[in-house]
Design a protein around this nucleic acid. Sequence first.
DNA 1: ACAAATAGTCAGAAGTTCTGACTAGTATGA
DNA 2: TCATACTAGTCAGAACTTCTGACTATTTGT
Lengths: 159, 159
Amino acid sequence: MTDEPSLGVLLFLPYRHLEDRVLAAVQAAGHPITLAQARVFQRVDQAGSRLTTLARAAQVTKQTAAYLVDQLESAGYLERVPDPRDGRARLIRITAKGRAVVAIARPVQAEIEAEWTARLGPRRSAEFRKSLLALGELTDPFAIPGRSHDQPGPAAGAG
Amino acid sequence: MTDEPSLGVLLFLPYRHLEDRVLAAVQAAGHPITLAQARVFQRVDQAGSRLTTLARAAQVTKQTAAYLVDQLESAGYLERVPDPRDGRARLIRITAKGRAVVAIARPVQAEIEAEWTARLGPRRSAEFRKSLLALGELTDPFAIPGRSHDQPGPAAGAG
DNA sequence: ACAAATAGTCAGAAGTTCTGACTAGTATGA
DNA sequence: TCATACTAGTCAGAACTTCTGACTATTTGT
């Protein structure tokens, strides 16, 4: 660690900064949402998401995702409706109250991105995003076939 | 969310991939280390680190860091020695057993970085790292003055 | 010497996440 | 159509992680 920082730490810093600042703004606006809840909420699609999808995207088990969605539903930020296409599934959707949270989060996110763009300059900034997109294809567990159902993501098959 | 992925998600994917693969390799080698423990262990300096420093770097409270260091110490991966420069402090150091873990982790990390470099190409890869370094200066809570003691990082001053 | 700040600990509570076992609906193929 | 395998989600319980609050010992600055 006296050496140059690892890519892990380097990715961690902006990731966490973004997450923390957006959450702080949401909380400051009077929404008592936790970080774990936010990590699920953030991934709910406008058109509605299935629990399993959220769980995979957030890289937690479906039980964990269910626990957090339950809380967000009780608090009125999310709702569950039957999925017309699949009787087993339910669609998790953002409520009006949830959209109020999105309305707070979005400009903060934009503000941070603007700070980053100012720091890197427009060209490097665009390239940075493109690089992240490329790495996403390499590192998104969705892309990895044959993962089983209860796992939060890769890294499991150890121990 | 039907839109293009946010920078948050984009940073999350490679961060988590790296973390998970390195941890999986360590666990596969027979070291029963958890993700939370690894996040602290990873930040211990060769020359020894103070608990408070580790806590800040990992962005958890010092109590949490202490809890995890206790476990890593019991398991023999870390040790605590008095800090000759400050009677209050102790230096947390990596033991021989801990260095065996580092010896497993390092090449995996290098392998992943090589994959990323292969994907981005050498030029974009170098620029990607430079951009992350620049953003680190912007987002490292160490750089933010006047933060108080028990906080895991920013984002706190909300609610 | 004294006040303020810092390093770390102790105790307890809350929050998150996991494993295992289960129910119900869907898809496939004989 | 029926059996089988698979997928979506839930229930229960345990383990793990993280936090808040209160405290001791030591150092720093005046």
